[in-house]
Amino acid sequence: MITQYLAASQPVPAGPVVQWGWLTITVANLLVILLMIAVFVLALLLPFPAPPEEEDR
């Protein structure tokens, strides 16, 4: 029972890591941040859809 608890409490490896000076970040987190920035920039640059034009009666 105790060995199962100890085995489950071991940390999971984070994967590849990128280091720039004091900044250390995993590649997966870096990709998520870059994708969020790209979506934000696209939301600023892409035009809103035009409202539907009303027909004259």
Rank of each mutant, 00 (worst) to 15 (best):
Q10P: 08
V41D: 03
L45W: 08
G21W: 12
W22D: 10
Q10E: 15
I2W: 10
P51D: 07
V18S: 06
I25Y: 01
A7T: 13
V18K: 07
L45P: 00
E54A: 15
E55K: 09
V32H: 08
L23E: 13
Q10G: 09
L30Y: 07
P11L: 09
T26M: 02
M36R: 05
A43W: 05
V12C: 05
A8K: 12
A8D: 13
I33N: 06
Q10K: 15
I2K: 11
L23I: 15
M36K: 06
P16D: 09
P49H: 10
L44S: 01
I33M: 09
T26Q: 02
I2R: 12
G15N: 13
L23C: 13
Q10D: 12
N29M: 11
A38F: 08
V32D: 07
L46G: 04
P51I: 03
L34I: 04
T26K: 01
V27F: 11
G21Y: 13
V32N: 10
P49V: 11
L35S: 09
L34R: 03
P52M: 00
T24F: 02
E53Y: 04
E55I: 11
A50N: 11
P16H: 03
V32K: 11
Y5T: 14
P52H: 01
T24S: 14
E53T: 11
L42V: 00
P47F: 03
L44C: 06
G15V: 09
I37T: 06
A7M: 10
L46Q: 09
I37W: 05
T26C: 02
P13A: 11
Q19Y: 02
P49N: 07
V41T: 07
P11T: 10
M1V: 07
G15D: 10
A38S: 04
A7P: 00
L23S: 10
P16F: 01
M1T: 08
A38G: 05
E53V: 11
L30F: 14
A8F: 05
A7W: 03
T24P: 00
N29F: 04
T24A: 08
A38Q: 06
V39S: 04
P49A: 07
F48Q: 06
A43I: 00
W20A: 15
M1Y: 03
V41I: 15
A50I: 06
V41A: 10
G15E: 13
V32L: 12
Q4K: 05
P16A: 05
S9M: 09
L45D: 02
I33L: 14
N29L: 12
P51G: 10
A7D: 14
Q10Y: 14
L34T: 06
A28G: 08
G21M: 15
V27E: 08
L44T: 02
L45V: 13
I37Y: 04
V18E: 11
E54N: 09
Q10H: 14
T24K: 10
T3L: 02
V27N: 06
A14C: 05
V32S: 12
P47R: 03
W22P: 01
W22S: 06
L6G: 07
P49S: 08
L35C: 09
P52Y: 01
M1Q: 06
L31I: 10
Q19M: 03
P47W: 04
A8P: 01
Y5Q: 14
P51S: 04
G15H: 12
A50S: 13
W20F: 15
W22M: 01
M36P: 00
T24G: 02
G21P: 11
L30E: 08
V18G: 02
V12Y: 04
A7V: 08
N29V: 08
L45S: 06
A50M: 14
I33K: 07
V39Q: 04
